[in-house]
């Protein structure tokens, strides 16, 4: 792999790290389209907790794993900005490592039959 490709990858990764590590703290705290659709029919309090009515979201069950990074935070870090940002950074690096590593392992080796440039 040539140096220009690595430069592009490093730049792209830096953008992803900034988005997940910093910009993520300015994301809307409201439930997304799926979540809010599943809450239709329920009455919510100011914190978004269900306090009455009936809706699909009431059937939600606990997550199997949870874990220290559950809900995009880091257990034990009280500062929201730090907690969200660091979990985002870890997520980006982990996703890059897992996806990039897996794709690298299964990639086609040798000279390509039809060169893609």
């Amino acid at each position: 792999m040539n140096r220009r490709l690595w430069g592009f990858l490093a730049g792209g990764l830096l953008v992803a790290l900034l988005l997940a590590g910093v910009v993520s703290n300015f994301a809307s705290p409201h439930p997304d389209g799926l979540d809010s659709s599943l809450r239709q029919g329920c009455t919510l309090d100011a914190d978004g907790e269900i306090i009455g009515g009936s809706c699909p979201a009431q059937q939600e069950k606990e997550h199997e794993i949870g874990g220290p990074l559950a809900d995009y935070g880091i257990a034990g870090i009280d500062n929201d900005f730090l907690s969200t940002g660091l979990s985002g950074v870890l997520g980006v690096l982990l996703t890059f490592g897992v996806a990039g590593g897996a794709f690298w392992l299964v990639r086609r080796r040798g000279t390509p039959a039809s060169s893609q440039g």
Partner: peptide, 15 residues
């Protein structure tokens, strides 16, 4: 070339 690029795409989508 595509393998590391795909890793970046996954990381970017996560972010």
């Amino acid at each position: 070339r595509l393998a590391p690029m795909a890793g970046l795409v996954a990381a970017f989508v996560f972010a």
